[in-house]
């Protein structure tokens, strides 16, 4: 292992990373097709599956294009010894990346602190914490491959895993992001699009209750654009919610047989 660490600093990837912004966005936005050939308001095909990890109380695997994520839920189980008494349950979230998750990341694949806390904040509004007092629910996510819109996929997958674990929730949780590039809005952006975006918009909502648990807007946005993005996300979330519901129903009927 010592040899590896010594060598790690001196290796480099032969692949050349294109870090330039495509010039197409100047005037004729409409001629632009997205890298994967989707329409601007079209999400990637989603593959969802529950019960990916047998050792966990609940788990789910989500694949949106090249973004591949596994989420395991453990508990409710005993809280850590050091924590004080609490009437309501605790939620503990962690998001980590594999070393091969993205070609640019190199071997830095480790814990992602920012996403961990974002995931926690997105989920705490949906889970009925009072149903498991004194105990902790752990939600751990591993991004196997990062292909863009990682956080929304992690959040949606976590919602599915929580439902699979039988943790009480007010509703399923779904998340979708939108990128603003020039004048156009693109839903469910891939890595290349995220790399050259002017602004990003991510919404986490409960589709049946039409309530938003988390909304982050960064970068350059005009008010009409925000309204449009909001509408896009609400629609996409409700569709994703239905797909997740179907997935859970299928899993339930399969286990009945």
């Amino acid at each position: 292992m010592a040899a590896k660490q010594g060598a790690a600093a001196t290796t480099y990837s032969p692949k050349i990373m294109a870090r330039t912004r495509p010039p197409i966005f100047k005037g004729s936005d409409l001629d632009w097709t997205r890298p994967d050939g989707r329409g601007f308001h079209q999400c990637r095909p989603a593959l969802l599956q529950t019960g990916a990890v047998s050792a966990a109380s609940g788990s789910a695997y989500a694949e949106f294009g090249n973004t591949k994520v596994i989420v395991s839920v453990f508990g409710p189980r005993e809280s850590k010894k050091a924590t004080s008494y609490s009437d309501v349950g605790r939620l503990n979230c962690n998001v980590s990346y594999t070393n091969f998750a993205s070609p640019t990341l190199g071997s830095q694949g480790t814990d992602h602190k920012e996403y961990s806390s974002m995931l926690h904040k997105a989920l705490e509004g949906v889970i009925m914490m009072e149903t498991f007092p004194k105990t902790t629910v752990d939600v751990f996510a591993l991004v196997l491959e990062s292909g863009g819109s990682d956080l929304p996929v992690v959040i949606s997958c976590a919602g599915l895993a929580l439902a699979d674990a039988g943790i009480m929730m007010y509703d399923l949780i779904t998340a979708v992001s939108v990128s603003c590039i020039g004048k156009s809005l693109m839903i469910d952006p891939v890595t290349e699009e995220e790399g050259c975006e002017d602004g990003s918009f991510m919404m986490t909502c409960m589709p049946s209750r039409s309530e938003i648990t988390q909304l982050t807007i960064t970068g350059e946005w005009t008010t009409p654009n925000i309204n449009e993005a909001m509408q896009l996300c609400v629609d996409a979330c409700s569709k994703l919610g239905e797909i997740m519901r179907d997935c859970l129903k299928q899993a339930a009927s399969a286990s009945d047989e």
Partner: peptide, 18 residues
């Protein structure tokens, strides 16, 4: 050279904590 690393992320087992 080949560098091998085996990881057990917290998702794989209830005994592994982040």
């Amino acid at each position: 050279c080949i560098a091998v690393e085996f990881h057990m992320p917290p998702i794989c087992s209830p005994t592994v904590r982040p």
